[in-house]
Simulated scan of single mutants.
Amino acid sequence: MRGVTLIELLVVLVLIGAVLMVTMPVFSKGAQSLEARSAARQVYGVLRVARSNAIAQAERAVVLIDSGNGQISLLNSSVGYVLPRGVQFDLMDQGRSSERVVFYPDGSSSGARVALSNSHKRYRIDVESLTGQVSVDVDKSVIAQRL
């Protein structure tokens, strides 16, 4: 019976290690992009719930976006979300660390433009003031700057 020598085993282990070192950064970039997209969907969901609550309860609903702590929350409610580590809010109105978005009973809002970003992706979240419609888009201007 022929077995495997120690040298052959070490060569195989070194090759596996080299392949893992090359492929791990590719997998981590993909995971970080998914993390940013998931965070954008969660923030979108909080804003949509706030608008729905304002219409259904016929009273204002206020959402606070705290970029310093990476949190978004619907005031007077348990609805909220904390961003994962590595993802942050970028408020479009410079010099402010928080943003208040008010939704009114008629569906309109105070309007807002916020960005969510990490080292690989940037998503822009817009809240229209007239309709209160919330939209999420990939910020392509940042992608173009990186190229």
Score class of each variant (00 low, 15 high):
S28K: 07
V43D: 07
F27E: 08
P25D: 11
V26L: 09
A36Q: 00
L20V: 13
A40Q: 02
V26E: 06
V43I: 05
L20N: 11
R37N: 08
A40T: 00
Q32H: 12
T23D: 05
K29I: 00
K29P: 01
V43Y: 15
P25R: 11
F27A: 13
Y44K: 14
L20R: 06
G30R: 09
L20M: 12
L34E: 09
A36D: 00
G17L: 01
G45M: 05
R37E: 04
P25W: 15
P25E: 10
A31C: 04
M24A: 11
G30M: 07
S38Y: 14
L20F: 15
V22C: 00
L15Y: 13
V19Q: 10
M21R: 11
M21P: 03
Y44R: 13
V26K: 07
G30S: 08
M24N: 14
S28I: 01
L34C: 07
A39M: 00
M24W: 15
V14R: 08
V14L: 11
P25N: 09
A39S: 08
L15S: 06
F27S: 11
K29N: 08
V43Q: 07
V22H: 05
I16P: 00
P25Y: 15
F27G: 11
M21Y: 14
A39I: 01
G17S: 03
Q32L: 05
G17Q: 02
E35S: 10
G45K: 12
V43E: 13
E35C: 05
R41M: 06
A18H: 08
L15V: 03
A18M: 06
V43H: 04
I16Q: 07
L20A: 12
S28P: 00
S33Q: 13
A18W: 14
A40V: 00
M24R: 13
A31I: 04
V19K: 06
Q32Y: 13
G30W: 14
M24T: 14
E35M: 12
A40F: 06
S33F: 09
P25M: 09
R41N: 10
S33M: 09
V19W: 12
V26Q: 10
S28N: 09
Q42L: 04
S33I: 03
V22A: 03
V26F: 14
T23F: 11
F27Y: 15
Q42W: 13
M21H: 11
M21D: 05
V46H: 10
A36G: 02
M21A: 12
